[in-house]
Write a protein that binds this DNA or RNA. Structure first.
Lengths: 128, 128
DNA sequence: CTCGGTATGTCGATGTTCGACATGTCGAAC
DNA sequence: GTTCGACATGTCGAACATCGACATACCGAG
C-alpha cells in the first residue's frame, strides 16, 4: 500500500531540524540565510546558532534529505563562499511526515482541551 | 499582562515529554499507566521505555509541572506500590503553550504545502 | 514453579543542542 | 586607514535527553 514507508523512521524530528526543513521547502537557501529566515519567520523567537545549524546540515546531507545546489559565485557580490541547499524528494517526505505527526498531536491536544476549539486561532500565534 | 511565570521558557518540549503531559491532562495516572496509555492512544506507534519515563517524571516533579497525587493502596489490589501523578496549573500551561507552538508549526507546514489543505484530515492519522 | 504482566527504577552509550570561539570578507563610518 | 558590524562557514566541549538493557519485586495462571 505504501509506496514510500521510509520517511517515518526518522521521526520524531527535533525543533531545529524541522525549522530547517520548513524554510528549505520554500526554496533553496544557504546556511546563513536559513538562520535569518527562521528568525524572521518566528519574529525572533527561534534562533539557530551556527553550532546547531551546520552540523544539522551535515547530517541532512548524509541522510539524503537535502542536496547541495551548487556553490554560487553571485556575479553581483564578488565571489562569496555560499553553499546553497535544496530539499530532496525524501527530505520533502520527511518534512510532510513530521508535519502530520505534529498535526495529530495538535488534534489530541484539542481533544484534551489544551487548545481553543477547532478553527479558532489563539491570539498572538499567527506565524510561529 | 502575564499572571504566571512564563511557561514558554520550557519550550520546545521533546516528544516523550509532551506525550506524558497529554495523557496526564486527561486525569491522574501512575507511571506504568502512562506508558500503556501513550502506547494505546498512538496505536502502538509511540512507546516510552522506563528509561525515558521515570527520569522524565523526576524532572517534571522538580520543575513543578506535575505533583504526586498520593501513593495509593488500592483496596482491591493488595498493597501495590503505585505512584500517581497529576498536572499542576503550571504543567497545564506548559502543555498548552507547547500545543500552541505545534499548532503554529502545522499552520506553517500547510502554508508551504507540506500538508493537505485546511480542515482536511489526512487518512490514517485520526488519533496519533 | 515458571512464565508473563504489573510496577518502579538505574546505567551507560549515543545523539543533539547550545554558547563560545575561530577565521575571513565586505562596506560604511570615523 | 582602521575599526565596526553584518555576512558566512565552521569546530569544540559541556550539558542534557533518549534509548535499550538490566535489576528488582509481586502477582496470578497454567
Amino acid at each position: 500500500m505504501a509506496p514510500t514507508p521510509e520517511p517515518q523512521r526518522f521521526l520524531p524530528l527535533t525543533a531545529p531540524m524541522f525549522h530547517i526543513l520548513l524554510v528549505l521547502s520554500a526554496g533553496e537557501r544557504h546556511g546563513y540565510a536559513i538562520m535569518r529566515t527562521v528568525e524572521e519567520r518566528t519574529a525572533g523567537q527561534i534562533r539557530l546558532g551556527s553550532g546547531t545549524l551546520y552540523p544539522a546540515i551535515k547530517r541532512m546531507l548524509a541522510d539524503g534529505w537535502i542536496e547541495e545546489a551548487g556553490t554560487r559565485l553571485d556575479p553581483a557580490l564578488g565571489e562569496e563562499q555560499r553553499r546553497y541547499y535544496r530539499l530532496t524528494d525524501l527530505g520533502r517526505q520527511v518534512a510532510g511526515a513530521e508535519a502530520q505527526r505534529l498535526y495529530a498531536l495538535v488534534e489530541a491536544a484539542r481533544a484534551y482541551h489544551l487548545l481553543p476549539e477547532a478553527g479558532q486561532h489563539p491570539a498572538g500565534w499567527e506565524g510561529v
